[in-house]
Simulated scan of single mutants.
Amino acid sequence: MDLHRPIDPNKTYEELTSEEKLRYDHQKLHELHKGHESMHLHMVMILLVTLIVAQFIVLEWKKRHYRSYASFTMVAMWTIPVLMSIKNHWVRFLVVWTIFTLCTGLVIRKCCVKPINVTTPRLVYKWFYLIYKLSCFLGVFGYILMMLTFLGINLLFGHKPQAWMDISLMLLFYGLYFGVLGRDVAEYCTDKLAASIGYYTQEGIPTRQLESDVCAVCGNKLLVGVDEEGVLGESD
């Protein structure tokens, strides 16, 4: 399909065919951005400089004060997107965020209870392993959908590329956001577990001599081998 082919100016938008509407929208987009090349160049340069400087600052902060860095980034990632969603009325994200927060909050609460229940470590593993799997699936599916859009597969179904790109970007965002947030919260929970059970020294987590099929935290038998993939089923 030639998206730059002229459209009959005597037709209204409602009279256009689906193919002509695609061409019309594409040409309108180019008209809106006509003459903005220099402005776009300045915006890109400012963005690149800002990213480089910010990256240097963040790396130094992470290197020198990791605990404050980890706590700040976790809280910021957990709160800033939801505040933006409330402001812009993004109901879908608010619903997903609320479900994630309630479930993760329950896991964090169990990690903070003393004494630690013997099933808590497995609960922590199961929950964050599930988050990891779902995040990977959403990210990969969103990426594949984006590549299909770039290849023009959406035109075979008569769909606009904007619709497919919106879905793919949304899936990529959900996968990346909850994947990174889940990783940070998992690290926080493991620190809490290690501190609560007294399994900690100034040099870090000490070594222990255990059987290869025994969990070093709860002392229960492992359901899978050391080199096998974990499971999410019942383990008590």
Results as ranks from 00 to 15, higher is better:
93 F>T: 02
52 I>E: 08
96 V>K: 03
136 C>W: 15
21 K>V: 05
3 L>T: 01
25 D>A: 09
81 P>A: 02
219 G>L: 03
169 L>I: 10
212 S>L: 11
222 L>H: 00
32 L>G: 07
125 Y>M: 15
50 T>R: 08
224 V>M: 07
24 Y>N: 07
175 G>D: 08
58 V>M: 13
121 P>A: 03
8 D>T: 00
50 T>N: 08
234 E>K: 03
3 L>I: 00
15 E>H: 06
37 E>F: 02
116 I>H: 06
15 E>N: 05
203 E>L: 07
199 Y>Q: 12
124 V>K: 05
87 K>T: 03
187 E>H: 09
24 Y>P: 02
49 V>W: 08
96 V>C: 06
191 D>L: 01
137 F>D: 14
67 R>D: 15
108 I>P: 04
63 K>I: 14
231 V>W: 00
218 C>N: 04
217 V>W: 02
229 E>R: 01
127 W>T: 04
166 D>W: 09
161 P>K: 04
197 I>G: 00
218 C>W: 01
133 K>I: 07
148 L>K: 10
220 N>Y: 07
165 M>K: 10
81 P>H: 02
153 I>L: 10
124 V>T: 05
99 I>Y: 00
51 L>K: 07
126 K>W: 02
83 L>I: 06
101 T>D: 00
205 I>T: 11
66 Y>Q: 10
227 D>A: 06
202 Q>E: 12
123 L>H: 14
139 G>S: 11
65 H>I: 13
212 S>C: 01
213 D>R: 04
